[in-house]
């Protein structure tokens, strides 16, 4: 039973199902919630799901982190460093874009006094 859970194939299946569940929870939140801040929280949940998906699919049982130290002298038997480097920069961009969206929301609230996205009809008239 424990050998079944320790195989790479099982771990990848868990990662695919779990991260896609998380992604569509965020999708449901964007589709149903009406508060501006709740919509941004849903966006960030979707972002976290994609990060887990990218990093998790490049993990295999028995590989170690791509860093050498006094015990480990060569770059062999290590996980792929390229998706880690890309996700590293994407997380920082995600924070900046989140702050930009929140500043748009704050400005909208200061102008109209509302933060309900279903009542955003200023451009209709």
């Amino acid at each position: 039973m424990l050998e079944f859970f320790n195989s790479t194939q099982t771990i990848h299946t868990i990662i695919i199902i779990g991260s896609m569940c998380l992604f569509f929870i965020g999708f449901y939140g964007i589709a149903t919630q009406k508060n501006l801040v709740k919509v941004l929280v849903s966006f960030d949940i979707m972002e976290s799901a994609l990060f887990l998906f990218f990093i998790g699919l490049h993990y295999q049982v028995g590989l170690v982190a791509p860093i050498v130290d006094s015990n480990l002298k060569t770059f062999t038997n290590m996980v792929d460093p390229v998706p880690q480097a890309m996700i590293l920069t994407t997380i920082v961009i995600g924070l900046a874009v989140l702050a930009l969206g929140l500043s748009f929301g704050i400005e909208y609230y200061k102008l109209t006094g509302r933060n309900d996205i279903s009542k955003m009809n200023e451009l209709r008239d």
């Binding site: 960030d44 990093i55 982190a65 996980v79 880690q84 997380i91």
Partner: peptide, 26 residues
């Protein structure tokens, strides 16, 4: 999860940003 997946760089970034600064900005 990032720490289990042998990605300590990403785990450190997520610890600083995802739980620290992002919550403060929200």
């Amino acid at each position: 999860l990032f720490f289990i997946f042998q990605a300590p760089d990403v785990a450190l970034t997520e610890a600083v940003i995802g739980t620290g600064l992002s919550t403060a900005v929200f």
